[in-house]
């Protein structure tokens, strides 16, 4: 029952945004709201919210150096150590973080445990890793491609990216590989949540909503490109205006554009208050971003405080006679 509620609420919320944007697009005074004010507000919320969250995390100290070590420590010189899985200096930590952030190293290790005739079988399982990678990279490339709408002249690397991404050109307009990958990967991540019982059990509306939102962004984008064409010149006029802080509102941009912008704005504004903050958190996670050097280099805990000790003196006072009888040396006879 609750899965349905979570799904319903998430989907309903996204559809409501679409609907509001569609209505807004019909009213020219509301176009100002949806074309200019909402994107600005969302962007500001995103930036300030993101900073606030990271600063808030930073306000809590890291009292202990507790990296999860996943490889051989630095020890005797003839034992080969694992620099990336058990870093022992900052450079190696950076290496570990690069692998984690750009290649999803930990997710790559994913296995699937199943029970067959009383034994646990650990199967390799790369689909989650692949899906996550496809999703994040296509999203990134799409975002970078969108720079052409905000910057004039369009930077060369954006044009190159465009060219490569559009390699599989099938007619005009260009069909981007990343468009397909994004929608495919998000759909996979969604279907996985719904049909795998364990995933269904752990999933919340907080998980479905961003998926629907991003799917909505992808679909509205593709629709706009292939099916419900918008006036690209006007769009660019608007987006460049936004980016240069001289917003203008050209006539005749299609409604679908406002839907797309509303969904993207929602994503931006929602970001800092949601699990999407893993994008910032992954860099700060003490389980990964610390070197395993506790024994070589002291780590300082800012709130370290003295504790009540059971001193040797008290101990000897408790047991002096017994110690003497057992021939254990004592400090005071």
């Amino acid at each position: 029952m609750d899965v349905k509620v979570s799904l319903g609420v998430s989907l309903g919320a996204v559809l409501a945004i679409v609907l509001v944007a569609l209505v807004g697009a019909q009213v020219s005074s509301l176009q100002l709201v949806f074309g200019i004010l909402v994107p600005y507000a969302a962007f500001v919320i995103f930036i300030l919210g993101f900073i606030y969250r990271v600063v808030d995390w930073g306000r809590s100290p890291v009292p202990f150096r507790i990296p999860t070590t996943c490889g051989q420590q630095k020890t005797l010189p003839w034992i080969k150590r694992n620099k990336l899985e058990c870093p022992s200096n900052t450079l190696e930590v950076i290496g570990r973080m690069i692998l984690e952030v750009f290649a999803f190293r930990s997710l790559f290790k994913h296995t699937k445990a199943e029970m067959a005739s009383g034994n646990i079988i650990y199967g390799g399982s790369k689909w989650l890793w692949l899906g996550a990678l496809a999703f994040h990279y296509s999203f990134l490339i799409i975002a970078v491609r969108h720079l052409r709408l905000f910057v004039e002249p369009v930077p060369a690397f954006v044009n190159v990216l465009d060219l490569v991404d559009g390699m599989l050109q099938i007619g005009a307009p260009t069909l981007y590989i990343t468009d397909i990958l994004l929608i495919g990967a998000v759909s996979y991540l969604f279907v996985r949540r719904v049909i795998v019982p364990k995933m269904r059990y752990i999933s919340l509306a907080n998980d479905y909503f961003p998926l629907f939102l991003i799917l909505g962004i992808g679909i509205s984008g593709v629709l706009m490109r292939f099916f419900i064409r918008v006036d690209i010149v006007s769009v660019k006029e608007l987006t460049v205006g936004l980016a240069s802080l001289h917003p203008v509102l050209p006539e005749g941009i299609g409604a679908i554009f406002f839907v797309h912008v509303a969904l993207v704005s929602t994503l931006f504004a929602y970001f800092p208050f949601s699990k999407l903050m893993h994008a910032g958190g992954v860099f700060l996670s003490p389980g990964r971003n610390l070197a395993n050097t506790n024994r070589a280099k002291m780590h300082v805990n800012p709130w370290n405080y003295p504790v009540k000790l059971h001193t040797y003196e008290e101990y000897e006072n408790d047991f002096r006679e017994k110690m003497k009888n057992a021939g254990i040396p004592v400090e005071r006879e």
Partner: peptide, 8 residues
């Protein structure tokens, strides 16, 4: 804050 419930 940051768990995405990926299920790994």
């Amino acid at each position: 804050d940051i768990c995405v419930r990926c299920g790994a």
